[in-house]
Every structure is written in structure tokens, then in C-alpha cells.
């Protein structure tokens, strides 16, 4: 069973524990600025939205990479950056229309969520279940798709 991250903004309190957990897992330090999951704030409404790579099938990042540095982890379905191959050209960062592949100046390479090899620490750290790691078929795909279509009026016409 393939699992995927389910992000539920309505449950997010903006505590940023996911960012702490992510940076600790990846860098061995608490450095939310380099977390691969980010919590965005909506001060007008007092709301928060955690967001990271959804490991999309389309994988624009993977296709755009000129040196094959982004590959599919068959066990988790994650698209992962092979650090040794990445040259830091950043083409993937402009290709991903979700803005979830970022260039890291400290390393000269790009970084994206790799689902922690199948045990995502952000989901473990989230105290309110705003981030859960569940059966990919149950992540509310239909609901999100319906909402996306509603919010993108031109979707019908172009389909």
C-alpha cells in the first residue's frame, strides 16, 4: 500500500513542530528555515497551512532535470534528489509549479521532501494530525480535485 502525506490546513495551529522535526531529521539541527515542509501563515484569517511536495505523478522536477539527479524511490513513491548527481542548476526549481523544490545555497544543490524514506518525521511531530501519513487512496484526492476545479474556473474549459 502506497502512503502519502495528507496535509489538512484546518487542523494546523502553526506550532512549526513539523519544521523543527524536518530540519532535525535532515540536518541534525533545529533550523526551520531549511525545513522541507513549510507552514504558511494567513494572518488575515488567523490560519495556517503546512505545505510540501506531494510527490506528484507528473514530476515536472524529475523530467526537467538535465542530469537525472531526481529519481523515483520505488518503495515510497517519493521523487528524491540524488545529491551526488545534482549540479545545482535549479531548472527543477522553476519547473515545479508547486514551488516545493528549493535551491539551498549552503550546499549548492536542491532539496525536496523525500518522505524520510517512508517514515516522515513531520507527520510524527504534528500534534494535531494536520499532517498525517496515510493510505494514498484515502488522502481526499477527489475532494481536493473538486475544490481545485472550483477555484480554477478555467479548468473546465481547458479540459
Amino acid at each position: 500500500m502506497q502512503k502519502s502525506l495528507h496535509l489538512d490546513p484546518a487542523k494546523c495551529t502553526g506550532c512549526l513542530q513539523c519544521e523543527m522535526a524536518c530540519s532535525y531529521e535532515k540536518l541534525g539541527e533545529f533550523n526551520p528555515s531549511r525545513s522541507l515542509i513549510k507552514v504558511f501563515s494567513f494572518h488575515f484569517e488567523g490560519r495556517f497551512a503546512p505545505y510540501t511536495c506531494t510527490q506528484c505523478d507528473e514530476a515536472w522536477c524529475q523530467r526537467a532535470c538535465p542530469v537525472d539527479a531526481i529519481t523515483l524511490d520505488m518503495s515510497t513513491g517519493a521523487k528524491i534528489v540524488i545529491e551526488d548527481k545534482c549540479v545545482g542548476c535549479k531548472v527543477c526549481t522553476i519547473s515545479c509549479p508547486f514551488g516545493t523544490v528549493n535551491y539551498v545555497q549552503q550546499t549548492g544543490k536542491v532539496a525536496k521532501c523525500d518522505l524520510c524514506g517512508g517514515d516522515p518525521q513531520c507527520a510524527k511531530a504534528c500534534p494535531t494530525d494536520a499532517i498525517t501519513f496515510i493510505d494514498a487512496n484515502a488522502t481526499g484526492y477527489d475532494r481536493m480535485k473538486a475544490y481545485a476545479e472550483k477555484s480554477l474556473p478555467s479548468a473546465e474549459a481547458s479540459a
Partner: peptide, 12 residues
């Protein structure tokens, strides 16, 4: 899975 499929459709 997420809204990207809708976006993908927009991208043709």
C-alpha cells in the same frame, strides 16, 4: 494526490 491534476489539465 492533490490539486495538481487539475493544474496539469490546465497545462494541457
Amino acid at each position: 494526490m492533490s490539486i495538481f491534476n487539475a493544474i496539469k489539465r490546465l497545462f494541457g
